[in-house]
Design a protein around this nucleic acid. Sequence first.
DNA 1: TTCATCGTATGAACCGTTTCACCGACGACG
DNA 2: CGTCGTCGGTGAAACGGTTCATACGATGAA
Lengths: 339, 339
Amino acid sequence: MTTTAPRRRASISDVARQAKVSVGTVSNVLNRPDRVSPATRERVLAAIDDLVFVPNGSARQLRAGTITTAGAIVLDVSNPFFTDVARGIEDRLEEADYTLMLASSDENPEREARYLRLFEEHGVQGLMVVPSTPDVEHLEALRARGVRVVLLDRPSPVDTLSSVAVDDRAGAAAAARHLVDLGHERIAFLNGAHTIRQCADRSAGLHDALVELGLDPGEALVEITISTLNADGGQSGTEQVLGLADRPTATMCVNDLTALGALRTLRAAGVPVPSGMAVVGYDDVTFAGELATPLTSVRQPTHQLGHRAADLLLDPDDVVEQVTFQPELVVRESTTGVG
Amino acid sequence: MTTTAPRRRASISDVARQAKVSVGTVSNVLNRPDRVSPATRERVLAAIDDLVFVPNGSARQLRAGTITTAGAIVLDVSNPFFTDVARGIEDRLEEADYTLMLASSDENPEREARYLRLFEEHGVQGLMVVPSTPDVEHLEALRARGVRVVLLDRPSPVDTLSSVAVDDRAGAAAAARHLVDLGHERIAFLNGAHTIRQCADRSAGLHDALVELGLDPGEALVEITISTLNADGGQSGTEQVLGLADRPTATMCVNDLTALGALRTLRAAGVPVPSGMAVVGYDDVTFAGELATPLTSVRQPTHQLGHRAADLLLDPDDVVEQVTFQPELVVRESTTGVG
DNA sequence: TTCATCGTATGAACCGTTTCACCGACGACG
DNA sequence: CGTCGTCGGTGAAACGGTTCATACGATGAA
């Protein structure tokens, strides 16, 4: 229960005074030590040490303009998919001696805007963002103002913005084909709002595949919108599915967290998987293969996704490029049963 | 493949010129709109809009000194435990209109130091950190320099630093007692280096419990040090355990990710759980109960942990307090078997 | 001895805000 | 009719660095 006195931070001029040199010299010691004679350099360093001088980043940045920090805004830090992507970003940035600031928008456009502004005001070099709205005008504007922007997990709808994404239509379509191959003719889809692009695309992919296989999506597909894309959402969504008059025989989930909630709910309700209900997830997170019923899921190259995004951000020529990775269906027992 | 021109950002004086007022007035419009007449306010706002003016955060901060951003440094963003904690922090900060910048040290003291410095240079109000070393002198120094510091998931060894932690000794001891109760007399412990405090404490808790139950830790406990505290570490650690001459009958894991790797490896080796090898995890992450063999684990109040840490950080009186939560053993089939 | 040269160090300008002392105009009031 | 207070607005100082033109002393060449 103590309180410390808010002593003022030492500034460069305090250091200069103590070392009996000019502020310019201190700055030189900090930034181009070779232009300073060893003797004075020593004196200055001693003073810095003595006063525990920590340069003021705001002042430096204000004058110098540059900063080696990048920001990333994802939808949800507690979703392993995004943190794996973040990890890929970090690993690439580290090579270039950049640091990453991570923030999570919670799928909330206002929060996204707030962080966007915060990052811009603080002059980050670039921003990697998973947009929480279909609309990217604000991001185009940001780029026009000189901030590098890379869309994460979302193909750019405009050619002025770089993006790194995974083909969500293809992923969802592969999952749908797999289910239809297994004989399912009525599929529930626990999905988020279509304002989130991944959700819209996966829905479209499902439709595509069904049509292609000669089924009527209007009949074969029951899309249920859940408000949170996690285990809780999966639970409430699955409860709805179970209450449906003409109950589907398979449930496709927008991500593995949602599938986790679905599996849990099915188990509690005594519905066997996959015989009573097949389940497909999306993301193929670490634990997908280790679940009570190993989960069929659509694997995405998360680490690569982040790595490539950071690559684009750091590109010396600031090229604009749209990168798309292909997902891969990983089949496990939640659709095929044992053996 | 286009390149945009790096047009200079509009500044407050550009706005002033355009609106034909002084810079002071523009600043007033921004910060205390009520002190400006509606007419001029309108003019200024129009100019701001027109020039797409975004205030320079560095300049503002340099002059005003304050900022409503807090930082958090965790060991690993891809570990659900930490992201759940981060979530708790965010939720509390949001109430106070603060924003959170998250960084991950990767258990690397150098990275930790780098982020610490970065945050300090940018003048964050406070920092919540999961230290990657037992030593916290650098954090005490930071606090002495006026940055609020809250130790996360780690009781403070000094009374000048606030901390929010969970009693790791108690958690590990509870797990050990549970195993011994079940008849296990030889236990493997897949643990990280003891420089990480959680690891050291959990090891101590295990020892405590064994001694208390009349066993000789030297015989009953085989601690295996793994280099990465995730599924890969769990895998390599378990491989070592399986190669042991006098093979233990139970494996305690430093966290659930590690346990995940252990379960996977045991399954691949055809060792039944728990009859061939009981497994205990730590953290009780979301999926722990949903695994092929539901995992006995030590639950920690993650969200609360973060929430309380943020609470302390925001405390108007800047009190120093050490908070300790109690963990809870959640027993599942990975130790007790079916039924 | 003189002069150009080179290596060091200096100090002031500048970055874009906030803040504060001050000023003019105007209405109210004695 | 003079005085006072209020309101709206001004302009400059300050924040803490970086950068650059300049000064200065020592050295080497002519």
